[in-house]
Nucleic acid binder design. Structure first.
Length: 125
RNA sequence: AAAGUAAACCAGGCGGUCGCCUCGUCCCGGCAGGGGACGGGGAGGAAAGUCCGAACUCCACAGGGCGGGGUGCUCCCGAAAGGGGAGUUCCCGGUGACGGGAAGGACCCUGCAACAGAAAAUACACAGCCAGCUUUCCCGCGGGGAAAGCGGCGAAGGUGAAAUGGUGGGGUAAGAGCCCACCGGUCCGGCGGCGACGUCGGGCGUCCGGCACUCCCACCCGGAGCAAGGCCAAGUAGGAGGGGAAUCCCGCAAAAGCGGGAGGGAAGUGGCCCGCUUCCCUUGACCCUCGGGUAGGCCGCGUCAGAUAAAUGACCGCCUCGUCCCGCACCGGCGGGAUCAGACAGAAUUCGGCUUAUCGGUUUACUUUGGAU
RNA sequence: GUCCCCAUCGUCUAGUGGCCUAGGACUCAGGAUUUUCGAUCCUGCAACGGGGGUUCGACUCCCCCUGGGGACG
């Protein structure tokens, strides 16, 4: 099921330098990036030669534990499905949902959202 | 056994696959915040709220006075704390184990007491009771009765949160600690206790109420806070507006100027004053506000977490712990099935506390009720 | 992260221990006026964020929660 399964066993790592960081860089993706809404997540994309990603959880999760949970799930999904994402700056935004969705629900939604994104992207080109 | 009270402790475990942060050693390297191997470490009892206290950093030192704030029964522990432990007196809740609260003072000064009530702090007036004396009136005439005044009386006047102590008795014209007993209060002494205080005996009829962010007393507190503070890189502007003095004297010198003193001004000591420090007084010093730029890195963050959109995770399987259901026994219990770790919750300078949130479990001590012996 | 503020009818607010059964303005509802609407007048509905404590008595004072908002290098 996972995207990496078929290809030659590439290691599914996600190192510190693959994380998008800095207030300015993230603000720019939010402001200038393309946005696609899913049911549980929103995806922001800004073209860039390097490939970096940030994970954000809605502030409507009032407790830090719940925001961490959502971000960890998103990180895991990204790590196992890096091939879905072309180069550029990405933000995966976990929308508020009660109760917190589990891993499989979130993964389905991310994959679906990326399909929508790819279609729109091709049409725009 | 059931229900409960208090204290202490725990906060699932094992395995598999894929991953994250950090430290040490070694290896590869195009030298980069790189890659790899092995080994060590990697969330909590509350990490939370930010309610106290400290370490640490900056304000030159943290000095004096006024103001302001905090705390307030006793003893011990503690660096300190609105902290902890053990106790004292009183109040409230509970059948009980126990739990929750309150407690510095009244000499003076500052203030408060709505409504009700005669009166809310000051000694009476008001209302009222009364043997006696004076005057007036009435009469069945006995000095009987009534009214006013003089005088005696003090808490008995439906209030109120609170009224100069309460209950009972004696006493009197009427009454009242006026007298007596008990209780309360206060003073003295003995005994117990380090002490708050307790207890026993005796004296005193009981002298001037209560409350406090604001009165008084004792003790404590300089201010800010790791976005403190220090370093590096990058980068714009050398901007606009405002505050504020723009003095004397002495010495050296030909003069420019230099030095010293007085005075004044600005800023800091984040409440004010003094004191102290720095600077300025013919140069554009110092300070404030606005505008513009950068929103990056390192240290702080060593002593076994140390990030910066922020690591300690994700998925799967099994096991017990629980929870629910069914059947048999119905006192403990036994068997089967289902569900499947399920509470509160995630370090950001670090400690000591407090408070708040919390599925449950274990141990010890104790309480109430029921059963058996 | 650290340090601070605020919470009263649907909205904006007054209230600094008792006169509060919480006042005012706008809104809303009903009535009067008007041929009708508007304007005007009259009447009415409607609130102290939650829980404890101090006090004879808390919107007010003190704690603890809850929900908003602000400042910083």
């Amino acid at each position: 099921m996972d995207a990496a399964e078929g290809s030659a066993r590439k290691r599914e790592t996600l190192r510190k330098y693959e994380i998008l960081r800095g207030h300015g860089a993230i603000e720019r993706v939010f402001r200038e990036g393309k946005k696609v809404n899913g049911k549980l997540v929103s995806v922001f994309y800004l073209p860039n030669p390097e490939k970096k990603v940030a994970f954000v959880a809605s502030r409507q999760y009032r407790k830090a534990v719940k925001r961490n949970r959502v971000k960890r799930l998103l990180r895991e999904i990204y790590r196992k499905n890096k091939d879905l994402f072309p180069d550029g700056h990405w933000i995966l935004y976990g929308k508020f949902f009660d109760p917190i969705p589990d891993y499989h629900q979130l993964k389905q939604d991310v994959i679906k959202t990326m399909e929508v994104f790819k279609k729109a992207h091709q049409n725009n080109d």
